[in-house]
């Protein structure tokens, strides 16, 4: 589900639209320089793939509902950051024009969140981890951590866009709720991304973007700085609800000065008012705990899956037949 029209204010829509347009054309330019006439074919078919992959449902283990892969980080890991962003932009455009999923005017905001931030930002987190850890385990760990943070960063961006539409004083609260919900979604995204990459690494590790050409050279400083910024922002999203005393202080000052007085009756009479006000003190520790648990879980799962896939891959490479992609026949006994 994407941002519909009529939720963000017009200045936010125009600003995000301009950023999206610039980002998309920059991505397309860079791709055409790299891929030349292959661009269109590869982007088209991978966009169709992402669309199809989003149809695979994963049951949530506790709720009678299911979720699906978003695919921004997966596309970036396989194709490179800008290609991932272009693929996601194409998917979003088709979803908007054909299925009315996400508004036409909010297309820019959706592309900023799910294309630029998820793919380009996610790659900036993935790349230093991959090079730092090295090998297949690096790919797995980097991609899973990046998938988890990309979902968080996208939700953070949405919270900021929402707040920019006239709800600045509610930003910490919106951030807290968004971060809490998306911590769970991000865990799922990280697990699916990791499991998909485990299969890819076992069969065609050469297809992963940049692994063959760049190897495990130390990460570039700019990438590390970007990754650090992204992680810091995501952490800030978890810590933001902790800043509730500050928020109350701001409201107190606003009430004293009179510039928030217009909102007061609505806050009390609104149907959601007591919900949002009472929710504030409870959610802060929960959100922070979810952030901590989620980060630790993703790191642990990435490390575990990375180790396991390294083991499988090295066993396969040592076996005389080479890697096996099919499932025909029983497993040969290890010599």
């Amino acid at each position: 589900m994407h941002i519909p029209d009529h939720v963000l204010s017009q200045p936010v829509l125009i600003a995000s639209g301009a950023i999206a347009l610039g980002g998309f054309s920059l991505g397309l330019k860079r791709l055409e320089r790299r891929l030349r006439d292959r661009t269109v074919v590869l982007m088209g078919i991978m966009a169709a793939f992402v669309f199809a992959a989003q149809m695979v449902n994963f049951p949530l283990l506790v709720l009678p509902a299911s979720g699906h892969l978003i695919g921004g980080v997966l596309a970036a890991v396989m194709l490179g950051p800008w290609a991932g962003a272009v693929v996601m932009g194409t998917v979003l455009l088709v979803q908007c024009l054909l299925f009315a999923d996400g508004g036409i005017l909010a297309l820019g905001a959706n592309f900023v969140n799910l294309g630029l931030i998820a793919s380009v930002g996610g790659y900036a987190i993935y790349d230093p981890i991959r090079r730092g850890v090295g090998g297949r385990a690096g790919v797995m760990l980097g991609a899973m951590v990046a998938a988890w943070f990309s979902v968080l960063l996208a939700s953070l961006a949405f919270a900021i866009e929402l707040a920019g539409s006239g709800w600045w004083e509610q930003l910490p609260e919106v951030l807290g709720w968004m971060a809490l919900v998306h911590a769970a979604i991000g865990l799922g995204e990280a697990m699916i991304t990791g499991l998909v990459l485990r299969s890819v690494l076992a069969v065609r590790p050469d297809l992963i973007f940049g692994v063959v050409e760049q190897g495990d050279a130390p990460p570039r400083w700019g990438r590390v700085a970007l990754a650090g910024l992204g992680v810091a922002l995501a952490v800030a999203a978890f810590l933001a609800p902790m800043a509730s005393p500050l928020d109350d202080g701001l409201e107190f000052v606003g009430g004293r000065l009179g510039f928030l007085s217009g909102e007061e009756p609505a806050m009390i009479s609104g149907p959601m008012a007591d919900y949002s006000l009472k929710g504030l003190p409870d959610i802060a520790p929960v959100t922070a705990a979810a952030g901590l648990i989620g980060t630790v879980t993703v790191f642990a799962a990435g490390w575990f899956l990375g180790r396991a896939s390294t083991g499988i891959a090295s066993r396969l490479e040592r076996s005389p037949e080479g890697p096996r992609s099919g499932g025909e026949g029983p497993e040969p006994h290890a010599a």
């Binding site: 078919i45 991978m46 169709a48 793939f49 199809a52 992959a53 695979v56 449902n57 994963f58 892969l69 997966l74 396989m78 697990m191 699916i192 499991l195 998909v196 990459l197 485990r198 299969s199 890819v200 069969v203 065609r204 297809l207």
Partner: peptide, 14 residues
């Protein structure tokens, strides 16, 4: 299983 499906579809798409 679902992730394996996605991975196989991705490689075949490539």
């Amino acid at each position: 299983l679902g992730a394996g499906l996605i991975a196989a579809l991705m490689l075949r798409s490539f």
